[in-house]
Nucleic acid binder design. Structure first.
Lengths: 204, 204
DNA sequence: CGGGTACCTTACTGCTTAGTAAGTTTACTG
DNA sequence: CAGTAAACTTACTAAGCAGTAAGGTACCCG
């Protein structure tokens, strides 16, 4: 079997095993066996256990971020529609690629510098995308002068964190479609933002 | 030194070391040494590495949940004020007890059944508290009949996830006070919820 | 003082598992 | 067919680290 194909196959298995066991409990032996090859092959192609995990991480992160971006770009010009489409794609991705999401989501710390950096990069990429949409939404509303990049960043963090956490809710409420979840979240966030932009203020 | 005091001291060091290195990279030897005792003492008092970590987790989770509840209870009857006070206490706690938060936040998976369960329990406790406040807020608004426990749970997940994620934002924006963050978040969520309850709907 | 109990140590064992050295097969090419 | 390169294997080594056996000190109570 040619190298590239083998690598992808190893990564396929890697994602499954890392998702099931976690980084440390997963052994390279097990991954090699499930891939139907011997351990040195893994080292030959992916360098080390960390290299293997990074490859898994990068590939799945690329897929997730790609799904978001593609959906957002295909949704016209209005920021709210782009955001909606991106979120919807996100929830659909998580619902469909459970193992990918586990690897991306539940392995953040506990790991080497390089791995933590890769996870942080992926999150930053999403965050930047979302923050851009929020910024567009704010400036479309004509109040861009009073609210800056910092505010967009704040909202993006809140929104991405909410979406993260709602993947747990989704798991506990299997009847709910990704689309339904997206709609609820948009209603929570976008209506609030719109009205705050219109000058509504809450104070204790 | 009497047992109870020693245990607390070991847990103190444990939280520091687990936060710094992560569960697996932390060694019991190092914790023992930093606590100024020998390794068998740790095993005598805390049973195992997992037992030690669980003790750290439980103590810090208790403190965090306690801080939230105490603040919420001391803030009168209005759900929005209780929620505000709870959130404010949360951000203050995270700002002040960085190591506790790292242990609670960044170690979710990758670990044994029992540890994952303890983390999940802590999160559930916060979630239940928040969901209760949301529920009260909804029923105060007089539209409780149309929105059920499921909706409150959804909002609670979104809110807790947002707060989680905003701890990262807080770290990257050191000028911001916990109180300021709380206010922004309340404005984002509560204004939106209020208006959605008033019948505003966003559709794509 | 004898004996018991709480606190504490040194000095190990044993296992898991990442990583590797050395060699084998397959297939293609001049 | 000789040569060589890519794909692949068996069978190890090495090291970290959780957990423990065996024993030491110090204090109290009859």
């Amino acid at each position: 079997m040619p190298r590239q194909m083998r690598e992808q196959q190893i990564i396929d298995v890697g994602v499954r095993v890392f998702a099931k066991r976690g980084y440390h409990a997963a052994s390279v032996d097990e991954i090699a066996e499930l891939a139907g090859i011997s351990k040195p092959m893994v080292y030959l192609y992916l360098e080390s256990k960390e290299g293997l995990f990074l490859a898994c991480l990068r590939r799945e992160a690329g897929r997730l971020v790609g799904a978001f971006q593609e959906a957002a770009r295909g949704a016209g010009a209005a920021p709210e529609l782009r955001l909606h489409a991106g979120l919807s794609a996100f929830f659909a991705f998580v619902a469909e690629h459970r193992d990918s999401w586990i690897v991306l989501h539940r392995q953040a710390s506990e790991l080497s510098e390089a791995i933590a950096a890769a996870v942080a990069d992926a999150r930053r990429a999403v965050m930047a995308e979302v923050a851009g949409l929020i910024r567009d939404g704010i400036s479309d509303s004509g109040r861009g002068s009073q609210l800056g990049a910092e505010d967009a960043d704040f909202v993006a963090h809140a929104l991405v964190g909410a979406a993260d956490s709602l993947t747990d809710w989704m798991e506990r409420n299997p009847g709910q479609s990704p689309e339904g979840i997206t709609l609820r979240l948009m209603n929570m966030v976008w209506v609030g933002m719109r009205d705050v932009l219109d000058g509504e203020v809450w104070v204790p």
